[in-house]
Structures are given as C-alpha cells and as structure tokens.
Design a protein around this nucleic acid. Structure first.
Length: 387
DNA sequence: AAGGCGGGGGT
DNA sequence: ACCCCAGCCTT
C-alpha cells in the first residue's frame, strides 16, 4: 500500500522543482481546470447565509469567522441551524468579544466540539485587542486561538481574495481523485501533498484574468464540488465539471480514492447521574470543567468512569442515601470517540453538590447543554407526561 | 505522531 | 454498523 512517500511526483518540495519536466501537470492544464471549476461554481453555488455579501460584493469577515469555526469538522446542514441565531445574538466581533463565555457556549449547544466556542470567543477578544478588527493576513489570523492553517487560508482567500491555499476534507478528496492518487485520507504525507497542489492551483487562479476566476472563487468552488458532486460515497461523476480532467474518473477509481482512514474503536464510558428536584420545582445542575469532554457545559450532577458507576458512589456525591435514588431511565449515547452508557436516577430527596446550582426548567433552556444532557432532561418530561 | 474532542446524517 | 464532515490543540 503506497503511503504517499514513494512516488516521484508526490514527494514534496525537494523533488518538485527538479521533476517539473516529467510532471503531467502544466500551467495550461491547470488554468483550464481552475477556469472550469470556477465557472461551475458561479452557477452552482448554494445560497448560504454566510455568503451574503455587503457593499462591493465583499463578504463580512465576522460572519465568515463564525461560519468557519462552526464548520470545522461539521457539515453545512448542522451549521445552518445554529448560524442565524448565533449572529443575531452576537451581531459583530465586538459584541462577541464583550459577551459572557457561558452565553457563547449556550448558543453553541448541540453543535459539538465545544472548545471551538470558547476559542472563538477568545479569538474575538484577542482580535479586538491586538488588531481592532479581524486581521487579513494568514500569519496574523493563524496567531489567533482556534485558527489553524485551513481557517486562516479560508478567511484570507474567501473574504480578502488573498492567494492562500486551503485544504479540508473536501479539497483533499477532490485533489486526490483528480490526480488519481490512492493515498490514505487524513495522513500527514497526504495532507502535505494536497497543500502543495492546492497552492499551485490557487496561484494559477490568481494569475487568471477570466471573469469568474479568483482565489476566493477557486477555493470555495473546490470545497463546494466536494460537498455537492465529488462526495465520499457516490460521487456524481457524470455531471462533474472536471470529469475530463479527473484521473480517478477516467480509470473508474473514484470509489477507491482516497483510501479510507484507519479508525479506532469507540471507548466505553459509564455515566450515572441523578435528576434532583426541590420543592420549588427547580433542578440541581453543575458545570463541567473546561477543557475535557463537554467542557464548560451544564449537566445534572453525576459521576463518570471507565467502569460502571456504583449507585452508592452516586448517592455519596449527592449527599443522599442509596434508597433515596430511584432508577429512572437508561440509554446509550454514541459519539465519534465514545460509547456512553448512561444511567439516570431520580432523587426523592434534595441532595447537594459543591458548585451546584438550582434552576427552573425555563432557565435551563438558556444554558449550555450537550445533546446527551438534553436527552437526560427530555426523559424527565417524557416520563412525567406519560404518567 | 497520536490522541482528544460531538453529533447527526448518509449509505 | 460504519462512514464522513469548511480542523485544531495538546502531549
């Protein structure tokens, strides 16, 4: 199985200059590729809320920032649900910078990878302090928390039309298929190869004087193609604007490229928690430590472990007796990395936890909750209604 | 270089 | 079931 290291053409910088003569790529070919793709994008681009342009047809940098953070490892359809409400709540960079972190997290509820929300908040503050606004250059952007090579390149190119390359999962798949490279997805050598290729192409786009071609259009077109046409499972090669340039399509290998990533098994996690209600119908909640799983989010109090949690331990944490806990519900919650077995109890007496807080059901709606906790809370309602 | 980090939709 | 997704940060 090729790792990407051995091929002449694929090995990086050192050899590329010296192999220019025997590469199949040539500037004219690349120019046509870039033009075909940009023309396709001009008529096929989805109308997404963060693509709304203001004066001079330019994107709002702040909206792009928010959308790029939300889109990290997250599909457009999921982001569409959260983007509008988030922008409405925090309309500008300075509004976000001066917001409470808890409120930012709350607006992120259900979107996952919650560190992104805290990074975005921090990023807004730092950008305001150091630059007064969101910076333009890749180097300045990448110095901000939560902005890596991809996000910096996306903002610089899509908003400011800088000839900066970008490589995400879509771009990687498209480029590997076009070149017929059977590399394994997501590996460092594969990424390096793609970044080099993306840079060549975006520079080609910058040279073009064709109307629809620009670094901004090219980068976004590449991702759009990956999302709409050159999809992971069943690519629509018959209607692809690049089908005559695509080696994978020509050799019928689009289903084998890229080779699937090696994945590791989900780790089990055991969680026991309790719904504790006081006489005022308030629920006891506590906040998870920042940094780890569901960092900074709220939850009904509980314990978690690599092995099943004894009910005695849960009772001790809540300061109640074991007999005060009644089994209420259980379910398995799957994430990409974890399989969480959740046991939900109800406490017949009001316990307490350090740092705990009593909230009404209405207040709870405004707090940051992960999907697992939403399900825990929902099981309370569902059960009550069925009685 | 590897592991941690969510959640939902497509196949 | 297993795949993937407009990745980034820490160790």
């Amino acid at each position: 199985m090729p790792t990407g290291k051995t091929s002449n053409r694929s090995s990086k910088k050192s050899s590329r200059a010296s192999t220019k003569a025997d590469t199949v790529r040539d500037p004219a070919h690349d120019a046509r590729l870039v033009r075909d793709l940009c023309r396709w994008f001009e008529v096929s681009a989805r109308d997404l809320p963060w693509r709304k342009t203001g004066n001079a047809g330019k994107r709002d940098p702040y909206r792009s920032l928010v959308s790029e953070f939300m889109l990290q490892q997250t599909q457009v359809s999921r982001v569409l649900e959260k983007f509008g409400p988030f922008i409405e709540r925090f309309p500008t960079l300075s509004a976000l910078a001066s917001a409470d972190e808890d409120d930012v997290l709350a607006m992120w509820s259900g979107l996952g990878y919650y560190r992104r929300a805290r990074s975005l908040h921090h990023c807004a503050q730092e950008a305001s302090t150091r630059f007064g606004e969101l910076p333009v250059s890749v180097d300045d952007l990448v110095s901000l928390k939560g902005i890596g090579r991809y996000t910096a390149g996306a903002i610089a190119s899509i908003v400011h039309n800088e000839p900066a390359p970008i490589v995400d999962g879509n771009v990687e798949r498209v480029l590997l298929r076009i070149e017929g490279q059977p590399f394994r997805a997501g590996e460092p050598d594969t990424r390096d190869w793609c970044w080099d290729r993306a840079e060549e192409l975006v520079k080609q786009a910058a040279k073009s004087r064709a109307k629809s071609v620009s670094p901004a259009a090219f980068n976004e077109a590449l991702m759009e193609l990956g999302a709409l046409v050159c999809t992971p499972r069943s690519p629509s090669c018959l209607t692809c604007p690049l089908r005559t340039d695509c080696r994978a399509c020509q050799t019928g290998q689009q289903h084998e490229i890229p080779a699937p990533k090696a994945r590791q098994a989900r780790k089990p996690l055991y969680m026991a928690c309790a719904i504790v209600e006081n006489k005022k119908s308030q629920l006891l909640i506590s906040q998870r430590p920042k940094g780890g799983l569901w960092g900074g989010l709220w939850e009904v109090p509980g314990l978690e472990s690599d092995s099943p949690v004894p009910i005695e331990a849960l009772a001790a944490r809540l300061g109640v007796a074991t007999k005060d806990l009644i089994r209420h519900n259980e379910f398995v919650f799957e994430t990409t990395h974890r399989s969480v077995k959740v046991e939900v109890y109800r406490a017949t007496r009001a316990g307490s936890v350090t740092g705990g807080r009593w909230v009404t059901r209405n207040e709870l709606e405004t707090l940051a909750l992960g999907s697992l906790q939403s399900r825990v809370i929902a099981s309370l309602t569902a059960r009550k209604e069925s009685l």
